[in-house]
């Protein structure tokens, strides 16, 4: 792990006034947007946002390879020694192809599909077609949240296709009429359809009002109390401006803010 990271960071040596953020690929696109805005307002500061995954981000924070780590799952065990800052909550949306007549599934049905007990769409009110479930790879933060929120301890079947990013799961679902997968609710676009779980759709309203229960935290991680440029950036993320950017992209802001501003 260390070696991978040294190689990763060698190419991007720490700049004089630069902040390196690394971790969850789910948090990455959102924090990139905030960072872009921040850099526009504060020229002279370079913020580099890297992916790698939640677990990798946690390790990188411990090893001081990045200034700020990101995670899209709760910390466990020893990892809790890190300082955590909740910047937003994100819904985990279950998505299908837009042509799929199924609009609503219960948690039990989704669990049945991913454990391999339900294999045909007609068993859950759809067409007589084989279900093609798509999951994320072992160790992914999104998969971790999905297992925690939906699977409740049952193992995801080995007949599921496996993809290694939100984007590639979305790509498969958008092109596969009988597919079903799960991605960050903020990333769902018009090429696929987010279904309702137990009757509740992951719309921004339902997410903010906490009607949609399948949410996970987006965390910034630090080894010690933030100071200097790092503190300024974190304050910006938690400021109404920063939170508004996150909310505008479909996340649930962590800090209540005035919509008028």
């Amino acid at each position: 792990m260390l070696l991978t990271f040294t190689m990763l960071t060698c190419t991007q040596k720490k700049a004089g006034s630069g902040i390196i953020i690394a971790g969850s690929t789910s948090v990455q696109p959102f924090i990139e947007q905030v960072a872009d805005n921040y850099m526009r307002e504060h020229p002279g500061i370079a913020i580099i946002v890297q992916g790698g995954g939640s677990t990798a981000g946690i390790q990188a924070t411990f090893n001081r390879i990045c200034n700020i780590g990101t995670s899209s799952r709760h910390l466990i065990g020893d990892e809790k020694r890190l300082k955590q800052i909740l910047i937003a909550m994100d819904g985990v949306a279950v998505i299908v192809h837009p042509s799929n007549p199924v609009d609503n599934l219960t948690v039990e049905q989704i669990r049945g599909i991913f454990t391999g007990k339900i294999r045909n769409w007609k068993d859950v009110g759809g067409k007589d077609e084989i279900i093609i479930p798509v999951t994320r790879e072992e160790g992914s933060g999104t998969r971790g949240s999905f297992e925690e929120l939906i699977m409740e301890g049952e193992e995801i079947s080995d007949r599921c296709l496996v993809q290694d990013s939100n984007g590639s799961v979305r790509e498969i679902i958008a092109t596969t009429p009988n597919g079903i997968g799960y991605i960050s609710a903020g990333l769902v676009d018009e090429r696929e359809k987010a279904i309702a779980i137990d009757g509740i759709k992951p719309t921004p309203e339902n997410l903010i009002s906490h009607h949609y229960k399948f949410c996970r935290p987006f965390l910034l991680l630090l080894l010690e109390e933030p100071k200097g440029e790092v503190k300024k950036f974190i304050d910006y993320v938690l400021s109404p401006k920063g939170q508004k950017i996150l909310a505008g992209n479909g996340l649930i802001p962590a800090v209540p803010f005035n919509n008028e501003r």
Partner: peptide, 18 residues
């Protein structure tokens, strides 16, 4: 049927693995 190879496992999971 879908299939997983040795190389794809390494590339898919190394980023997260500890």
């Amino acid at each position: 049927d879908s299939v997983r190879t040795l190389t794809s496992t390494i590339a898919l999971e190394l980023g997260y693995a500890t």
